[in-house]
């Protein structure tokens, strides 16, 4: 019988701990498929964050270094500078990359570190039980904004939009995985980000709008609808910066 679909070799056989309706699983699969398709599983070092994806070393088939909260890009920088011939990526949530690790993210982009950051934005702190994140939308209720985020708590940070202004960032994209077409586009962006790294062009960053039905207090279907109606209008989407030869960059 002809095989029409198989689990990617880029992932292990471990069952994930992610909640039903969470899109981490889709994003993991896309990365696993890309590692396999680009034939780089054996030469890739991933850096795990602190947060819901903090156990992703169990799921990705490549070597993984577990970072402290917010420090994944610095850890990845060390690994890449030690082994420039390796492919290095970070997998981080919005709290990790845009709050406690904001300095590391922006600085790595400014240095043009030849690594790839995958930034999963679900507008909330998932692992700690649903507290306000740097990306929490105005009016959104969380455990630490119980009456809704108001302006005294600041505004949601659109990190990819910020990074697109940084010269050392070669590729910045903002995508979603809320429907099959979006998933395909997300995969294309992720693949391009890895290719930009392989081509040595600079820092590549892909933000992916994600769901957290558990902490948002909605069903998985409602969560996808919430991404479409609440998150997509706020966060810039698409390829926000492409390499110079494609007309991007400041060179």
């Amino acid at each position: 019988m002809k095989t029409v679909f198989a689990k990617t070799a880029g992932l292990t056989d471990r069952v994930t701990h992610y909640c039903p309706g969470c899109t981490h699983g889709i994003i993991h699969r896309l990365i696993g498929e890309i590692l396999e398709e680009m034939e780089i599983i054996g030469k890739t070092v991933g850096v795990a964050p602190v947060g819901c994806a903090g156990f992703c070393e169990n799921y990705f088939a490549c070597d993984i270094i577990g970072a402290a909260h917010g420090r994944a890009v610095a850890v990845a920088t060390g690994a890449k500078r030690a082994h420039p011939d390796r492919v290095v990526f970070t997998y981080q949530g919005d709290g990790d990359g845009a709050s406690i690790g904001l300095a590391e993210t922006v600085s790595a982009a400014a240095r043009g570190e030849k690594l790839t950051s995958i930034f999963v934005n679900n507008a909330i702190y998932g692992m700690t039980g649903g507290q306000m994140a740097p990306t929490t939308l105005l009016g959104m209720k969380t455990a630490t904004s119980p009456y809704g985020r108001d302006e005294s708590m600041g505004y949601p940070l659109d990190l990819p939009k910020l990074l697109a202004q940084v010269r050392g960032a070669a590729y910045v994209a903002s995508v979603s995985v809320d429907n099959p077409q979006a998933v395909r586009e997300a995969k294309k962006a992720l693949k391009k980000a890895f290719q930009v790294q392989l081509d040595g062009l600079g820092y590549s960053f892909v933000s992916i709008l994600s769901t957290c039905p558990t902490n948002w207090g909605v069903t998985p279907v409602e969560a996808l609808e919430w991404v479409r109606t609440k998150m997509k209008p706020y966060f810039a989407l698409g390829e926000l910066k492409v390499p110079a030869e494609e007309g991007g960059g400041e060179e």
């Binding site: 270094i65 970072a67 610095a74 850890v75 060390g78 030690a82 082994h83 300095a103 590391e104 600085s107």
Partner: peptide
């Protein structure tokens, strides 16, 4: 080799962490 100027000592120690984890003398 490489001299890498970090944005802070916080980042520097984690660059050391990443390189050391990848087997380098750092």
């Amino acid at each position: 080799g490489t001299y890498l100027q970090a944005e802070s000592e916080v980042a520097a120690i984690y660059m050391v962490y990443g390189a050391g984890a990848a087997g380098a003398r750092v």
